[in-house]
Simulated assay, not measured.
Amino acid sequence: MEGLNVLITGSTCGIGLQTARILFRKGADVILTCRNEVRGRRAVESLLSGVPPEQVAKQSERIHLYSLDITNYNEICEFCEDIARDFRHLHVIINNAGIMGWPFELSVEGIEMHFATNVFGHYVIVERLLPLLLNTNRPDFKSRVIVVSSGLYRNAETIPQVSKILGQKTYDYNSKQAYAFSKLANCLYAVALSKMLEPHNVGVYCVRPGFVNGTELGRETHWFLRVLAAPIIWLVAKSLEQGCETIVYLAETPGDQLKTGQMYYEKKEEAYNGMVDTTSIRQVWAILRHIEDVVWKQNPRLTDAQKAAGAANRELLNESLIVMAAPPAPEVVEVTEAPEAPEVSIETQ
Rank of each mutant, 00 (worst) to 15 (best):
G3I: 04
L4Q: 09
V6T: 07
C13R: 14
L23C: 05
K26V: 10
A28T: 03
V30S: 03
I31P: 03
R41C: 12
S46H: 13
R62K: 15
L68W: 03
L68I: 06
F79P: 12
D82M: 14
F87A: 01
H89K: 12
H91A: 06
N96T: 06
I99P: 00
M100S: 11
G101P: 04
E105V: 10
L106P: 01
V108Y: 09
E109S: 11
I111M: 02
E112I: 06
A116E: 01
Y123E: 01
E127N: 13
E127I: 14
L133G: 09
N135M: 07
S143D: 11
E157A: 10
Q161T: 13
L166T: 00
Q168A: 12
D172E: 12
A178N: 02
A180S: 08
L188P: 03
A192N: 05
M196R: 13
V204E: 02
F211E: 09
T215C: 04
L217E: 00
E220S: 11
H222S: 12
W223F: 12
R226D: 04
V227F: 11
A229S: 10
P231Y: 04
P231N: 04
I232C: 07
I233C: 07
A237R: 09
K238P: 04
C244F: 07
P254T: 07
G261F: 03
Q262C: 15
Y264W: 05
E266D: 12
E266T: 05
K267E: 09
T278I: 02
R282N: 11
Q283K: 12
E292F: 13
D293W: 05
Q298V: 11
R301Y: 15
L302I: 11
L302K: 06
K307N: 03
N318K: 11
E319V: 15
V323Y: 09
P327Q: 11
V332T: 09
T336G: 09
E347Y: 15
T348Q: 13
